[in-house]
């Protein structure tokens, strides 16, 4: 999990442009990744706009950030999480396409140019399947899974972001893993 020096955050709170740039540079990748994985490949075209909206909310509230209460990155993930839920609530669009077209699956390829063609194709299909399986999870379970498995947050931080107890986080994570393992079993076995 990325961490930012407290001094950088303090300078940004005072309006320092360099500090603001440092924050955007450090956090834009995890924000884009979390938004994309939570909302699904269908939102690819809007992911950067959504990430900008998260940054706007973050900087608007920057004066209220208190380092004594939370780590800055944990605080940031709270904005990402809330924005994800806001987007789903307001736009009423499906978070993922169970009939995702070939075009989508081709565009969501990771940067794996060094892979052999067969491996490339397998990876592409696995990525598509994981995206679909994540989309079928409940929103709470999906968010917990992404924060834990992709962003590497500990249980305490996830509990702060999601606003539930650590026990509930563990429970949701357990169920998410179970569901994903069940849905992805054939591809995971083939990959192994």
């Amino acid at each position: 999990m990325i961490d930012l020096p407290e001094a950088t955050v303090r300078k940004a709170q005072q309006g320092d442009q360099t500090a603001c740039r440092t924050i955007v540079e450090a956090l834009h990748r995890p924000i884009i990744a979390t938004l994309f994985r939570f909302l699904g490949p269908r939102w690819r075209g809007e992911i950067e706009d959504l990430a900008q909206e998260v940054f706007l909310k973050l900087f608007r509230a920057l004066d209220r950030f208190d380092p004594a209460r939370a780590k800055f990155t944990t605080w940031m993930y709270t904005f990402v999480r809330n924005h994800c839920f806001d987007v789903l609530k307001k736009r009423h669009l499906p978070t993922t396409s169970l009939n995702a077209g070939e075009q989508d699956s081709q565009r969501e390829l990771p940067d794996d140019r060094e892979l052999r063609p067969q491996q490339h194709a397998e990876n592409s299909e696995l990525g598509q399947r994981i995206g679909e399986a994540l989309g079928q999870l409940g929103e709470d379970q999906r968010m917990v899974f992404i924060l834990r498995e992709y962003e590497g947050l500990d249980y305490g931080a996830i509990a702060e972001v999601v606003g539930v107890s650590e026990g509930t986080v563990k429970s949701r994570l357990f169920r998410a893993k179970e569901a994903l393992r069940e849905r992805l079993e054939p591809w995971l076995r083939a990959g192994a």
Binding site: A33, R37, I47, E108, P110, L126, G131, E149, L184, G191
Partner: peptide, 8 residues
């Protein structure tokens, strides 16, 4: 396997 679902 998880890394296969990569963000843009």
């Amino acid at each position: 396997a998880l890394a296969a679902f990569a963000p843009p």
